[in-house]
Write a protein that binds this DNA or RNA. Structure first.
Lengths: 154, 154
DNA sequence: ATTATTTAGATGCAAGTGCATATATAAGTC
DNA sequence: GACTTATATATGCACTTGCATCTAAATAAT
C-alpha cells in the first residue's frame, strides 16, 4: 500500500488499496495544478469559488449547511467565512428566529469574483480531467467516486 | 460546477466537471476518516506511513526521488523528513559522490511504526472503499484514477 | 421555572503549508 | 580556471489547519 504509482504491477496490491492510492495521487496531482492556475491568475483558492457558487445556487445558507455541503470542518468554514467577509465577498446576518444561526449570502463583489474565477477553473479542470479521459470514462469515474463520498445514511 | 453532491441531476453539469467535483468530495471524505482513525489510535499522519513504506520497498532514496514518488512539494518533504528524523524513524546521510544529495533510509523504529500503522490504515481503507464498491468497481476506479495522476510525459 | 443537554458558531494555540529565497554544490560555457 | 546556470535541499515568514475549548442560544428534562 503506497501512494506510489507503480505499486507492484500485478496483484500484490489489493484492488481497494490501489483505488485508494490512486485517489490520493489523482487528487494531489489535479488539485495542485488547479490551485497553481488560480494563483498564477492572482485569484483566491478553490474553496472561495465553491462557497460563492454554492451560495449563488442555493441562495443564502446557514453556516452549518454550507459546511455540510462543502464537507468542511466547522472551524475551517468559520474562518473561511471570516476571510471572505473581510474581502467583502459575502455577508453574514443573524437569523431572526434562531439567534445562534446566521445567514450567509454573496455580495455583488462575490458574484463578480466567482465569474472571474470560472474560466480559469474550468480550464484547469479540462486539463486535469477532460484531456485524460473519454467522456464515458469521466462519467463512470464520477459515478464511482460519488459512492465514496455519499454518507452511509444517504 | 460545485463541490456539492446534488449538482443538477441530469445534464446541466458536464461530465468532466462532475468527475472533478466527486474527486474532491471523495478525497475529502475518505481522507478525513482515515486521518481520524490514525489520530484516534495515536498514530502519526498518513504521509509518515507513505514515506516509511516507500523507503522500505525501494530501499534508501534521495529526497528528490521520494518527493517525486509521493507527489509532495520539495519544501514539504524537507520538513516532513526533519520531523521524522527527529523522531528517530528515518536517517539522512550525505551521498559520497554528490554532496548536495542525501540518502534517506528507515530505522528499526521506523519499520516498527509502519507495521503498527498498517492495520489501522488498512481498516480505514476497507471502510472507505471496500464497503462502498464491489471488487470490479474498485478495480475500475483505480484504473480511471491512475490516468489522472499519470504524468503527461509518462 | 431551573437545570442539564444539545446545537451554532468563534477562537487561542500549536503545527503544517506555500511562497520566495537562501545555501551549497555540480555542470556547462567561454 | 573564472563565470554563469542548474540542481538538491533548507528556511524565514505569513497564512491555514486541527484540536480543544469557549460562548451563546435553543431544547429537553425534572
Amino acid at each position: 500500500m503506497t501512494v506510489t504509482a507503480d505499486a507492484c504491477p500485478g496483484s500484490c496490491t489489493e484492488v481497494a488499496e490501489r483505488a485508494w492510492v490512486q485517489l490520493i495521487r489523482a487528487h494531489r496531482s489535479a488539485l495542485c495544478s488547479v490551485e497553481k492556475a488560480l494563483r498564477a491568475a492572482e485569484l483566491p483558492p478553490l474553496e472561495w469559488y465553491d462557497v460563492l457558487l454554492e451560495l449563488e445556487r442555493e441562495g443564502p445558507l446557514r453556516s452549518r449547511d454550507l459546511q455540510e455541503r462543502l464537507l468542511l470542518a466547522q472551524y475551517n468554514l468559520s474562518r473561511l467565512v471570516d476571510r471572505m467577509e473581510a474581502e467583502g465577498l459575502i455577508e453574514r446576518t443573524r437569523c431572526s428566529d434562531d439567534a445562534r444561526c446566521q445567514w450567509i449570502r454573496t455580495t455583488t463583489a462575490g458574484d463578480a469574483l466567482r465569474q472571474r474565477m470560472w474560466p480559469v477553473y474550468a480550464d484547469a479542470i479540462r486539463t486535469a480531467v477532460e484531456s485524460r479521459l473519454t467522456k464515458p470514462q469521466a462519467a463512470q469515474l464520477g459515478e464511482l467516486l460519488a459512492r465514496l463520498s455519499n454518507c452511509p445514511k444517504a
